[in-house]
Design a protein around this nucleic acid. Sequence first.
RNA 1: GCUGGGUUCGCCUAGUGGUAGGGCGGCAGCCUGCUAAGCUGUUUGGCCGUUAUGGCCUUCGCGAGUUCGAUUCUCGCACCCAGCGCCA
Length: 432
Amino acid sequence: MLTAKYVRDNVDPIRASMKKRQLDFPIDRILQLDEEWRKLKKETEDMQAKHNKTSLQISELKKQKKDADAQKLIGELTDVKKQIEKNDAKLADYQEQLDKLLWNMPNTLHESVRYGKDETGNVEVKKWGNTDKKIAMGHTEILEKLGLVDIERAAKASGARFYYLKGDLVLLAQSLERFALDELARKGYTPIATPYLLKREHYRGVTGLGDFEDALYLATSPREAKKEEDMEDEELFLIATSEHPMAAMHAGEVFSAKQLPVRYVGISPCFRREAGAHGKDTKGIFRVHQFEKVEQFIFSKQEDSWKYYEELIDNEEYIMQKLNLPYHRIEMCTGDIGVVAAKKTDLEIWFPSQQKYRELTSASNCTDWQSLRLDIKYDEGKERKYVHTLNATAVAVQRTLAAIVENYCNDNGTITVPDVLVPYMGKKTIGR
RNA sequence: GCUGGGUUCGCCUAGUGGUAGGGCGGCAGCCUGCUAAGCUGUUUGGCCGUUAUGGCCUUCGCGAGUUCGAUUCUCGCACCCAGCGCCA
């Protein structure tokens, strides 16, 4: 569990990390609340000890049929009990204040993460592939001309940022998913098909608070929505990525060190409100409310997590290279990394129509941020430690389709199927 | 949705209005030696303290109630299993 003790034990790195983020996080307030809490806790525990001892004496006296003496002690206990109750209420209040602060505390950054105000501060560390291609139309236009996507009718049916995929594009989407799944299964990742709805208590443990407003859809039956009391117990959120149900899958569990690492490759649709993205990428299938994604997830021992972080990125690059899509690799700066990750690396793919790289995959080492909140541990020797969790995209289907369309379109209007997908598609060209 | 049964340490399992026990697995140590076994201790989380290897609190799905005292009794909730109903 996430407690103030964690802050006490790691206060120096936490302070340094907040300073680098240029964030005024109230660490001193946490330490102060913790100290007051511990003082009162000790006081209350001593009273409880007295109470317990007296209860045992009462038991003894009753056995010896000394009812009068017992009654006297019972009278004495009444005051102690009242005071304990009072203190418990105060302790709960401290606890609540601490929880609020702790649950929203951003992860401690890896030392290599650089300061930057926003995405302009991210650092390119690698480039791969040929970016010479010039095209006149964007992926949306190409696909609409071929009748492979219907955005207007999707708007009619469901609103902006939805789409119908049609014909060979549906098959290409499935091919892409299956390709990524097969490659990772071959590398020892266990395929997982996850639930698409997740309880609030687990959602709190995998993402920052802002996501509840900006990213997540709340799914509630009309009948449940009517009763307002205890609503929070009934709330289910549509998942924004299979990372979340994969993390929650082992909530409250204890691995043995021998079981680790646990490698999963999840497959699911993802639902995102994209609040705050007004005006950005409003057309096509690039930024949408619903998309499919193949996602890598690893539970690891603490000392191994940076090794697996590299493995996840290697897998991402491997898939990009197999698909022969030009990309570059960038490391997120403090302004673009969010609260959960200790370090984050994206791959961005080249979009010829925009003459720009756009985000396609993202890999994060969340270290113990999620495991502290979801209570996921492992036994190693005498010690019980919190696992490190890592996640990374394998394939974000719709965005990758867009990238394939732009990088594989031909002058005659057709689209060449990437070599590795031909066995899944059963054809080499789309649009004829 | 209805009826019944269940939820106890990493896993399995006993238990009762008065300090929560056993087995397996794990860990530490001892003994011995040939395909391994045996013995002892330890195995929820936290607070204080000192390093002496102590004291205390907490913990039997979650929350509330009755009680000097609840794992045990009562009520509510969650989840699991079985049966019935409904259903792709």
